[in-house]
Nucleic acid binder design. Structure first.
Length: 239
DNA sequence: GCGACAG
DNA sequence: ATCTTGTCGC
């Protein structure tokens, strides 16, 4: 009887120690100052060689309510390993450049409902491709001290040429000489996505993983599924 | 003053 | 993001 219990997955939730603390209800001026201070702590390094779970994060808003969704997949995107949702009141307005202050307070409680711990997190938004080089993916990655990067659907800052029409084509996202990220075509003939580093990952690894996780759709599976869950409340498909 | 502006 | 109908193409 004991041996049977031990063989099962006994973990019901994942513990998420936060690696820094600061107020979230800050006026825009102060929030921007926090971003500028934390940006100096970001680390750019290769992804771990052993990855068995990747997570996608997304947040949707409806009638003053915010719903955060996390979907955890196998590293090749083949299987859904876990998912979680958290809903609450909207407590911060949308301000370009301050998206993390609106979304992270909802993402954290959703993450705490997971029973599988991901080694990498994909965000629906930018990382370093941000006015102060501290987008949502940077903030979440640093807070969790976990590899994290952004895959955004539209540009926030920077300039770029149009990448080739074929899937896999890419073009640098620049601010003068500074490389902010890469515009990546995940589907032939379809509008590209904007990949940028968040924390503890290299741009090359982020691009490779993005393409590996987006074999069929424009958005990588983790983010695409998280988006579906945040809007509908459940995973797509039969069931 | 005017245009831009992740989700 | 959200508000909304039909439509073109694989």
């Amino acid at each position: 009887m004991v041996g049977f219990r031990v063989a099962l997955q006994t973990t019901t939730t994942v513990d998420w120690p936060l690696h820094h603390e600061h107020a979230w209800d800050l006026p825009p001026r102060d929030a921007a100052a926090v971003q500028g201070r934390l940006a100096g702590q970001l680390v750019e390094s290769p992804l771990p060689t052993s990855i068995d779970a990747v997570a996608g994060v997304d947040v949707s808003v409806c009638s003053g309510r915010v719903r955060a969704a996390i979907v955890v997949l196998a590293p090749d995107g083949s299987r859904v390993l876990d998912h979680a949702v958290w809903e609450g009141d909207v407590c911060y307005p949308y301000v370009p450049g301050l998206l993390s202050f609106r979304e992270i307070p909802a993402v954290i409680p959703a993450l705490e409902r997971l029973s599988v711990r991901p080694q990498v997190v994909l965000c629906d938004g930018h990382g370093r491709a941000h006015p102060r080089r501290f987008g949502l993916a940077c903030h979440l990655g640093l807070l969790l001290d976990l590899p994290c990067f952004g895959v955004a659907k539209t540009r926030l800052v920077g300039t770029h040429d149009g990448p080739g029409r074929l899937r896999g084509s890419r073009s640098p996202l620049l601010d003068g000489d500074e490389l902010l990220g890469t515009v990546v075509r995940t589907r032939t003939g379809v509008k590209p996505v904007f990949v940028s580093v968040g924390h503890r990952v290299t741009l090359g690894d982020a691009i490779d993983l993005t393409l590996a996780l987006a074999p069929r759709y424009r958005l990588p599976e983790p983010t695409r599924l998280a988006h579906h869950v945040s809007r509908s409340g459940r995973l797509p498909g039969p069931g």
